[in-house]
Amino acid sequence: MFVTEAFAQDGETTAHQPADAAASAHGETIHADRAHEPGFPPFNPEFYPSQLLWLAITFGVFYWLLKTVIMPRIGGILENRRDRIALDLEAAERMRSDADEAKAAYEQELAEARSRAHSIAHEAKESAREDAEAERKRLDGELDEKLDAAQARIAEVKRSALSEVDGIARDVTDTILREVASIEASQDEIAGAVAEAGR
């Protein structure tokens, strides 16, 4: 449609028919084409076969090149990078879990050490307490013994003192009876009286 319109408007060039290959094979191709220009170039069917053929060849080669060489290459690079990033992330994750484990182990050890220290301190305190207890008991026993001995001695002294009191009382009674009342009394009578009075 466009072509025929262009033909109609372009009165001067309608006389010329589209250039044949023989004419355009000469040096002044542009000039020849210009002279034979049948209107608007994009609607000129003269070059349709050539354009289609060369488009098929170039695009076919382009598609083949991209599909078999270039795109696997780019895809490989991207794949590589993805893998590498995934690996790195995995390694980082592993390291983190290692670190977590180490921290947990450290904390456990710390807790163990702390409890061990606790028990050692406890034992030491306990043994010290026991030692002190034993010492105290020993001292207590010694003191008790000494107390007992002292009490025994006191009792002895008291008994001997008391027995001497009887003798003194008999002597005093004897003396009083003789000096004051001039009564001679036998030792047995005096002892009986003293015992009677002491009761």
Binding site: A21, E46, F47, P49, S50, Q51, W54, T58, F59
Partner: peptide, 13 residues
């Protein structure tokens, strides 16, 4: 058929 290598073909290449 005219399958000439043209400036169009050149720019496709």
């Amino acid at each position: 058929w005219d399958f000439s290598f043209t400036n169009s073909a050149l720019f496709m290449v």
